[in-house]
């Protein structure tokens, strides 16, 4: 296969580091901490009366929002790539290296 070595710009690197980092923070890192600190389950534990007897250390509010921000970074990056290609068409083939193949 051809060498697909490409140099990423700061926006690409930002999307990789921040987007992926936030998703991994919300799922893996906080998930690991959540498992070993207090209630190990990601949702509140209820008793038979429906009362909350144990809450997760990191609420859905926190973890869900962090993951959402990470996914939003990826989405914004995708939109940016499209508009950057419209403004500077010459960057498409050279930056991606994914010329059409059969």
């Amino acid at each position: 296969m051809s060498n697909t070595d490409t140099e990423l710009g700061p926006v690409d690197t930002f999307a990789m580091v921040v987007g992926g980092g936030l998703v991994l923070l919300g799922t893996v890192v906080l998930g690991l901490l959540d498992t070993f600190i207090g209630n190990p389950y990601p949702l509140p534990v209820l008793n038979e009366a429906g009362e909350v007897v144990a809450s997760p250390t990191f609420s859905v509010e926190i973890r869900g929002t962090i993951i959402a921000l990470g996914l939003a970074v990826f989405a914004l990056y995708a939109v940016y790539k499209l508009f950057a290609a419209i403004v500077s068409p010459e960057t498409v083939a050279t930056a991606e290296g994914d010329v059409p193949t059969r």
């Binding site: 499209l82 290609a85 419209i86 068409p89 010459e90 498409v92 991606e96 059409p100 193949t101 059969r102």
Partner: peptide
């Protein structure tokens, strides 16, 4: 795969996104 070999896409590379 077929569309990307057309002249239109080659002349408008942003469409590949």
């Amino acid at each position: 795969g077929y569309l990307e070999r057309t002249g239109f896409v080659r002349n408008h590379p942003w469409t590949r996104y």
